[in-house]
Amino acid sequence: MANITRLRVNGTLHAVSADPETSLLAILRDFLGLTGTKYGCGEGQCGACTVLLNGRPRRSCLTPLGSVASQEVITIEGLERHGRLHPVQEAFLTEGALQCGYCTSGMILAGVALLQSNANPSEQEIAQAMEGNICRCGTYPRIMAAIQHAARQTKESRR
């Protein structure tokens, strides 16, 4: 049953011995110890388990391990570079865009993905792109502000 699947997570190549039907979420959390990616619903409705798969947002709870062989996964643990936070992480702190923080990993990764395809999203565009991410604490306005803040920072740093 178990066979070896290779995948790259946050730049490190892993060979995982597990049933290919196992969810990527369980692999990240239980096999690789990357618990920053969260379980929220198991049906792709809340976004807490969002990771980047080849740069695109993906619900890891609905993604079987076998489908991501040899691919590139980025989790919340992989955004920080050389002790420096990603601008979206930084912006979440600046805007105080969290309460309990359980949705935060998924929100940040969804925001990072959005900014890659739209460098300057409007509130409406953020709402559209992130409608599948739930923050039960209701910090949505701050998350929108954080993503726009990160967009401005990124633009300035590119100048």
Binding site: G33, T35, G36, K38, T75, L98
Partner: peptide, 27 residues
């Protein structure tokens, strides 16, 4: 004052109850 340990939450470092683990742990 911002959340005192906010950095742990935006980096995924904070361990919630569901993130806890022990050697030899079963599910």
């Amino acid at each position: 004052i911002p959340k005192v340990d906010g950095r742990d939450f935006v980096t995924g470092k904070h361990r919630y109850p569901s993130d806890q683990s022990l050697p030899g742990m079963l599910h």
